[in-house]
Design a protein around this nucleic acid. Structure first.
Length: 803
DNA sequence: AGCACGCCGACT
DNA sequence: GTCGGCGTGCTC
């Protein structure tokens, strides 16, 4: 039989299947969806079997070397989904497969030099003798570093050395070694008595097993008896003890207990919202629901009870949660309800932990997966529901190849499995809400908070006014009063700082000169930890200069209203307030995120000060004031979604206040109070915001009225970039319909990264069935230049970041 | 992406 | 005459 294989070479020319003969011995072993090792040119590489057929058009077939899996890692559905994904994103097939699997399954390659078996080290050139004296292989990279390649090549030509390629697994399955007696208790006693007197340690071991005949983890035995593994080894050799390895999962939540929860009684609104979902599950229909419920309206309980129903039907559930809110709190809610039927996938896990969670899914040992974006590819075969929480979050769009949106994948998979997709949000994306209004999605609404708690009152403070009245601090008078009042009443405060847009850069106070990266047109970010400035795009690092390079002033210092600065300021004005700061610096260590939140919940602090990461999911009864220090930092980004993002963020943050008995208050500080996204966030009026923003989008030909596609071209030479971009704009322009609008060529918002100049071209269109084909031929046309002269063309159909 | 093959310049 | 530069084209 013949296997069609997609090889692990991400390039235009190899983006197709290659046929291999399946060796006789592997005839019923090799299945579609398996990883295999195949010869490719002179090398050995990994590949995915996509299909098996009786014959091939190709004559000189090579054989598959070996399978890498016992069972396929990709189901038929996922293989098919790979085709769909490559079609939608113009990515390589191999990248599509790779993105669907845990990184642990990606092959690692090694290139080595090996001395031929019949050759003795002494017969090699002098510098090589020592190397091959004790080893028969030597790493290629090492040889290259030592400058030994040319000698080795000569030996290779004489047939004394050969080049070997190896394909290796990235990680091993974790095993634990156990020991148990191989003989009966009586025999153990006999054996012990027969042992020579000097074998005291071995006697101890036997004695132990006489009292404890069950198997024990060998590590534990060694530490209990204080013996070395040599003692055990000899007993194993004598066939008295048996050593066995058991495969175990690396369980990131191993030592945690989750209190079990029972389904809560639903409110009338919840009841009304869940009914259509349950019916859809019951009738095995494919349908997309938009669950639009204000913050604190009980969306999670709807998710939980829908999943309950799915599990009872013997089917499986995928729950997507934005990375940032995939906190232990969130995990607790699912593990609490469904116990060990839940797998969790997020970026905080190690490679091995992710792999193990994935294997639980593959082996159907769990029926629910809670995870970030990539969990949408969980290899379930009987999906009953897909839930995407915080549906509007932009992190569901992957920003490198394949540039997929988890929402689109969810819909595609739901069609295959005939199951509902539930998109939940308090501030739905414009795209989804528009679709719900058109009837493409079914809209479910939860208009009220649980137990009828009122939404917090929101006050918008004009910081220009504050400045005019002589208040130069970062806290308005109202906010300061509010904080003081809460401190007195022993209630808690959340202060939110939106750092995006202007993170901590270094600027000269005299001339305004900002220190930029020498390779990229972007300011360097100050890192307090090592007192250095770093470029987030190319990794360039340097120390803060003592003097301004422009005007030689010494008043050069680190700028930007960072959380540390706010913390300092708070310490000056309100020294009695206890503050917990949460940002990348304080939460980088594993588990620190959770610890800080626990401390805050336990009342060990009055104020929680943080960035993005505290905008979601916090649900503490004692928070009665939320302050947003500057609402408009992200409003001025060059992005047509900036208003939408601002509105969503403000609404989310506001939702942190007054979720329980105590009433909440929100204070938003801004320099542009008249902007509709801020004004309407203040009113918590999504519907008016929606209408208003839709008008803007229509006016400027943006989604959801138009589709957009972004082409970014980069090269070391500016002239080259400009001319290629011009040609591309022209090429596309003559091929699309006249309703399409082409913007560009223009320089990208970040015009240079890592010394490569970047230009872009944006296509807006309503209906271009041929666009995909046009773009593919475009890539074909530039294929050689992209391979040889370092030209890069990236295409994003439906981009979320326009930079 | 690698890697081999192949065709031109500066060296013992 | 040969070592080595990197353009070109192939990999079942």
């Amino acid at each position: 039989m013949i296997a069609s294989v997609i090889v692990d070479v991400p390039a235009k020319q190899t983006d197709r299947s290659f046929d291999y003969k399946i060796p006789e011995s592997l005839n019923d072993v090799i299945k579609p969806g398996m990883r295999v090792v195949v010869p490719f040119g002179p090398r050995k590489i990994q590949g995915f079997v996509v299909s098996i057929k009786p014959q091939s058009d190709f004559k000189k077939l090579k054989e598959i070397i070996e399978p890498m899996d016992l069972y396929p890692v990709l189901t038929d559905e996922l293989l098919e989904l790979g085709d769909w994904l490559t079609d939608k994103t113009l990515a390589y097939k191999i990248s599509a497969f790779q993105v669907m699997l845990p990184a642990a399954l990606k092959a690692k390659y090694e290139k080595k030099l090996r001395i031929m078996p019949s050759v003795t080290p002494e017969s090699l050139a002098a510098p090589l003798q020592a190397i091959f004296k004790n080893n028969d292989t030597y790493s290629w990279d090492e040889a290259s570093n030592q400058g030994l390649l040319s000698i080795l090549q000569k030996e290779a030509n004489r047939g004394k050395i050969e080049v070997v390629y190896e394909v290796k697994e990235r990680i091993k399955k974790k095993t634990i070694k156990y020991l148990l007696p191989k003989v009966t208790k009586e025999e153990l006693i006999n054996l012990m008595n027969e042992m020579p007197a000097n074998a005291s340690k071995q006697k101890e071991v036997l004695n132990f097993f006489i009292d404890h005949p069950k198997q024990i983890e060998s590590r534990e035995l060694l530490s209990v008896l204080g013996i070395s593994s040599a003692t055990v080894k000899s007993l194993v050799k004598k066939n008295i003890l048996l050593e066995k390895s058991l495969e175990v999962y690396r369980d990131p939540y191993e030592d945690r207990k989750f209190d079990t929860t029972k389904p809560l009684p639903l409110s009338e609104d919840q009841e009304k919202a869940i009914r259509p979902i349950l019916t859809t599950i019951e009738e095995k229909l494919q349908k997309v629901f938009l669950l639009y419920g204000v913050t604190g309206s009980g969306k999670t309980e709807i998710y939980l009870q829908s999943i309950q129903q799915v599990i009872e039907k013997g089917r499986e559930a995928i729950v997507l949660v934005p990375e940032i809110s995939l906190t232990p709190q969130m995990v607790k809610r699912f593990k609490g309800r469904f116990g060990n039927k839940v797998a969790v996938l997020h970026s905080g896990l190690s490679l091995g932990e992710k792999y193990d969670e994935w294997r639980k899914i593959q082996r159907k040992e769990v029926s629910v997966v809670v995870g970030a974006r990539s969990a949408i590819f969980a290899p379930f075969e009987n999906l009953g529901i897909i839930i995407i929480d915080e549906e509007h979050e932009t992190s569901y769009k992957q920003e490198d190849n394949p540039r997929y949106h988890a929402r689109d994948v969810a819909v595609q998979r739901s069609i295959f499995h005939r199951c509902p997709v539930v998109l939940g949000s308090a501030t739905p994306s414009l795209e989804s809400f528009a679709r719900a209004k058109k009837g493409v999605y079914e809209l479910l609404t939860l208009p009220k908070r649980m137990n009828n708690h009122a939404l917090p009152s929101v006050q918008i403070i004009d910081m220009r006014e504050e400045l005019r009245e002589g208040n130069r601090s970062m806290f308005s008078r109202s906010l300061l009063e509010g904080i003081k009042a809460r401190l007195e009443k022993k209630e808690q405060i959340v202060l939110f700082l939106n750092k995006r847009g202007h993170s901590s850069f270094v600027m000269c106070r005299d001339c305004g000169y900002v220190i930029n990266c020498p390779n990229c047109d972007i300011s360097l970010t100050y890192h307090r930890a090592n007192q250095q400035m770093k470029c987030h795009y190319c990794g360039y690092e340097s120390f803060v200069p003592k003097q301004c390079p422009e005007c030689s002033s010494e008043h050069i210092r680190y700028f930007g209203t960072g959380t540390q600065k706010v913390e300092e300021e708070l310490g000056k004005i309100l020294p009695e307030a206890r503050v917990i700061r949460m940002d990348v610096d304080t939460t980088s260590r594993k588990g620190s995120h959770e610890r800080l939140l626990d401390d805050f919940q336990a009342g060990k602090a009055d104020i929680l000060l943080g960035t993005q990461m505290i905008a979601k999911g916090l649900d503490f009864p004692n928070i009665t004031l939320v302050g947003v220090l500057s609402a408009d930092t992200m409003l001025h980004l060059p992005d047509f979604r900036s208003s939408e993002k601002t509105f969503q963020l403000l609404t989310q943050v506001s939702g942190r206040a007054g979720r329980h008995e105590l009433e909440g208050e929100v204070i938003i500080q801004t320099y542009t109070p008249e902007h509709y996204s801020i004004e309407l966030a203040g009113e918590q009026n999504f519907d008016r915001f929606f209408d208003r923003e839709m008008m803007m989008r229509k006016l400027h030909h943006y989604p959801p009225f138009y589709y957009i596609t972004l082409i970014t071209i980069s090269h070391e030479n500016v002239m080259k970039v400009v001319s290629v971009t011009e040609n591309i704009a022209k090429y596309v322009g003559t091929r699309v319909s006249k309703d399409a609008i082409i913007l560009g060529p223009v320089a990208s918002p970040i015009p240079r990264i890592n010394n490569r100049y970047r230009y872009q071209c944006l296509i807006k269109y309503k209906r271009e069935p041929d666009l995909s084909r046009i773009l593919k031929s475009l890539l074909d046309h530039y294929q050689q230049e992209m391979a040889s002269s370092g030209l890069q063309i990236s295409i994003d159909l439906n981009p979320y970041i326009l930079m």
